[in-house]
Design a protein around this nucleic acid. Structure first.
Lengths: 238, 238
DNA sequence: CGTGTAGTTGATGCTCCTCAATTTTTGTGG
DNA sequence: CCACAAAAATTGAGGAGCATCAACTACACG
C-alpha cells in the first residue's frame, strides 16, 4: 500500500528515469509545467508553497514510497526540494495516461495513487485543525514514527524551523513542546541537533493527539504553574 | 473544468443513479464501505470528520459540480450530509474503473477528478495555515463568492457554526470578524440570519488574504483601541 | 405569546507569537 | 586540531489574538 507509487511506475510499460538530487536542490518549481509523476526512491524531500512575505507552508514531507506530482493544474502551484540527498523515479504523465488507456490494472493504480494523495492532503488539513501546539506536535511525532522509525529511534531529517512551517507554528513553540515532552519522559531527545527522538510513552502521546482536554495541556508548556479550577489528572504530576 | 465530475459520470457508459436528500440527511457515514463516486447536481452538502469530544472538522462544503467519494480507503473516514435539499449523481466505483479500462478518455477523466480532489484538500490545508482569523474568513468569503455568488450577492447556505468548524475557529470569532468587515464597509451583511453577503471592496478583502501584516489586522477585531508602534495604514481609519 | 435556535457582543484568561538573550552545533581557515 | 564565525536550538518575558463563558437580541414556530 505504501509503495504503491513505486510499484505503479515500475509496472507501467513506460520509460522511467531515475533522478538524483543533492541537499537543497529543486525537483520542480512553482509556475513550471507539470510533465512528470514522481515517486521517492531514497532520501527525503518536501513540498511547499511560499506566501508573499517570506512565510512558507510546507505541505508535505516526502519519504521513500511517496508519490508526488499528481495535482492537476496547468502550472505547478508548489515547489519540491530535496531535504537530504535523494533519488526519485519520474515518468511522463502523458505516457502514463496513454499506457493506462490500454492497461486496466495501471488505470486503477493511477487512480489509487491520486486518491491516496487526496487522502494525505486531507489528513494534513485535519492536523492543522488541531488547535493546540501540543496536539499538533504529538500527531507529527507519531506520524514520523510510523514513517521512519528504525529500531525505535526516529531520525528526523528536518530542522525545527521546517517542522514549524509544516505545522503552522514557530520554531520557538516547536522547541518548547518537544522539550516539555522530554521533561515529561514521553519522549527522549538526543543526537546531533536534537534530531533523534525515541518515543517512550506512546500511549500518553496518543492521548494528546485526540483530545487534550482530558489532560492538562497547559502543564505541557508551563509545568510549574498551578492551574486552578480545571480537572487535574495524573498528567500534571511529575 | 468545474463540472468535470458531472461530465465524467454522464459520459461514462455505466449506470448512474440520481439521489435526493433532505436537509440534514446523510449520504454516507464514517465506517461504511466506499462503493460509489458522487457528483453534486443541486443543493449544498458537506463532508466532516468528528473528533472524540464533539469537536467536528468540516473538510469541505460541496456545491453543484463538486465530486466526492474519491478518497480510497477500506472504510470511509468521513461523513457526508446534506446542508440543504440536494440531488447527487452516484456511480459504482468498480463499474467506473471497469469502464475506464476500455475507455482512455474516461480513464483520464477519472484521474483528473481524483487529482482535483487532492488539490482542493491542499487548498484547504493552506487556508488553515493562515494564522489569523481575519485572513481565514477573508479567504472563505472570496471562495464562496467564486462558487455561489449570483448577481453580486453571496447566499450562504451554512450557519456561522459550520463556517467555524470549517475554518477551525469558533462561532463567536466568525461573527466578530464578519461584523468588523461590515463596519469597515468591506462587505455588506443582510437577509435572514445575516446569511446574505455582498462584497463591496474586493480589493481590500483580497489584501487581507495574502498578508495581514501590511494592514492593521488588530484593528479588525478592536477598531477603537489605538495601536502603538505598528505601521498604521488607511485600513485603520473609518 | 412563550420557547428555542442562531447570531451578536462583552469580559476575562490561556495559548502562542514576537523579540531577544543564551547555549549548542556547524562550518571555515589558520 | 583549535579558534572563530555563522547557524540552529533553547529558553525567558511580554503582548496579541482567539477561546471561553455568558448575557443579550432577533427571529421562527408551535
Amino acid at each position: 500500500l505504501i509503495n504503491i507509487n513505486r510499484t505503479m511506475l515500475k509496472a507501467a510499460k513506460v520509460p522511467v528515469v531515475e533522478l538524483s538530487y543533492g541537499r537543497g536542490e529543486t525537483v520542480y518549481e512553482r509556475g513550471t509545467l507539470p510533465q512528470f509523476v514522481y515517486a521517492v526512491e531514497k532520501g527525503t524531500l518536501y513540498r511547499f508553497r511560499s506566501a508573499p512575505r517570506k512565510r512558507r507552508a510546507i505541505l508535505q514531507f516526502l519519504f521513500p514510497g511517496d508519490g508526488f506530482g499528481y495535482e492537476i493544474r496547468r502550472r505547478h502551484l508548489d515547489t519540491v526540494q530535496a531535504l537530504t540527498n535523494a533519488k526519485v523515479l519520474a515518468a511522463s504523465r502523458d505516457a502514463l495516461l496513454a499506457a493506462a488507456a490500454s492497461d486496466p490494472r495501471l488505470s486503477s493504480l493511477l487512480f489509487s495513487c491520486a486518491a491516496t494523495a487526496a487522502t494525505a492532503a486531507e489528513e494534513k488539513a485535519v492536523m492543522l485543525g488541531a488547535k493546540t501546539a501540543t496536539e499538533r506536535v504529538a500527531r507529527f511525532l507519531l506520524e514520523m514514527e510510523a514513517r521512519l522509525s528504525t529500531g525505535g529511534v526516529i531520525d528526523l531529517p528536518m530542522r525545527r524551523h521546517q517542522i514549524a512551517e509544516h505545522l503552522g507554528l514557530t520554531t520557538a513553540t516547536i522547541s518548547r513542546v518537544i522539550s516539555a515532552f522530554g521533561r515529561k519522559k514521553i519522549i527522549q531527545v538526543r543526537g546531533l541537533q536534537q534530531r533523534q527522538i525515541v518515543i517512550q510513552d506512546k500511549q500518553r502521546l496518543q492521548g494528546l493527539t485526540s483530545d487534550a482536554f482530558d489532560l492538562d495541556s497547559a502543564s505541557i508548556l508551563k509545568p510549574r504553574k498551578n492551574v486552578k479550577g480545571r480537572r487535574v489528572t495524573g498528567f500534571a504530576r511529575d
